[in-house]
């Protein structure tokens, strides 16, 4: 097991480094931070001076080697925008994103399992049909639109919930719902399909013929067998939220997390900060994948290295 984790960690290091390489070159292509950082009326001499200070005037390969070395030593440099260590900003914002993802995707996972199971127990029943239709609707709604609808309904018309910022526990409700709904829809569909598959298998007939209680047949035998695809998708939903969906949701609700930081750093051409954010998200994605593999092996003992 330790051997397996070590191999996956090494693999993860390669993945993170690959991601960082891509980010480095892409950000150097899309724009010139000096243009944004200085006022329009700045002279070319002033611009060159700043470029020299930031090291942007050196050959790109030299910049890359410098960057690779810095990344390997976790030294990301100072944010161009805030003039303080980029990692400090990231670590300050990270807990808010982690909280939003945990609440939103956590709720989606916890709700999807009973919903999918109930739907699977009576295929074509009322709960099943409702779940399928609602899931399709949930999948078809873009998050930026869903978020705005929720703001109009619960923020503006009803005035029940705050729509911007993170000053009280109530502030998390709307962003969490917006983040959760599409994930809930996908997860409920997968739980339903996986459970229907398992409930139709021969071993389920056998455990039923053993006289076992229904809750044990469904909740222990069928659910454990169905849980590999459920687990895999849950992991993907967490990664998908961290690596993309939070950007949309945090922008809509002004939630002060990493997603908002990404938007801000792109607007200000803050390459250093952007690199630090991407690095952090890539590391989290790798860690979640390793956790998934470990959980997969715990569920299905047939899987071996």
């Amino acid at each position: 097991m330790a051997d397996f984790i070590l191999r996956r960690l090494l693999h993860g290091v390669v993945v993170v480094f690959g991601v960082m390489t891509i980010v480095f070159f892409v950000t150097r292509i899309i724009g010139d931070p000096v243009q944004v950082m200085l006022p329009v009326e700045a002279t070319e001499a002033q611009r060159d001076l700043l470029r020299g200070q930031l090291g942007l005037d050196r050959p790109i390969l030299e910049q890359f080697l410098q960057f690779a070395g810095d990344t390997l030593t976790f030294n990301f440099g100072d944010s161009l925008w805030q003039r303080r260590p980029a990692m400090e900003i990231v670590l300050q914002r990270l807990p808010m994103t982690a909280l939003l993802t945990a609440v939103g995707i956590g709720a989606a996972i916890l709700l999807s399992i009973p919903l999918g199971i109930i739907a699977a127990l009576r295929p074509d029943g009322i709960v099943d049909r409702t779940t399928v239709v609602a899931s399709l609707a949930g999948l078809s709604m873009p998050q930026f639109w869903l978020g705005l609808l929720l703001i109009i309904l619960f923020g503006v018309k009803l005035g029940w919930l705050p729509t911007s910022g993170a000053r009280s526990p109530a502030h998390i409700v709307l962003p969490a719902i917006t983040l959760a709904l599409p994930s809930l829809a996908r997860l409920a569909m997968v739980v339903r399909t996986a459970m229907i598959d398992e409930l139709n298998r021969q071993y389920i007939k056998v455990v039923r013929a053993k006289g076992l209680k229904r809750i044990r047949v469904v909740g222990v035998h069928a659910l454990r067998n169905a849980s590999v695809p459920i687990l895999t998708l849950s992991g993907w939903e967490i990664i998908g939220a961290l690596a993309g969906n939070v950007v949309v949701v945090e922008s809509i609700f002004a939630w002060p997390g990493l997603g908002l930081t990404v938007i801000q750093s792109i607007e200000r051409q803050d390459l250093i900060l952007l690199q630090a954010v991407v690095f952090t998200v890539a590391v989290m994605a790798v860690c979640i994948n390793i956790a998934l593999d470990i959980a997969h092996r715990a569920i299905d003992p047939r899987v071996s290295a």
Binding site: R201, Q202, Y203, V206, V207, H221, R224, N225, I299, D300, P301, R302
Partner: peptide
């Protein structure tokens, strides 16, 4: 079908 009659996990 004995091959599929036992829960594999």
């Amino acid at each position: 079908d004995a091959m599929t009659s036992l829960d594999p996990l």
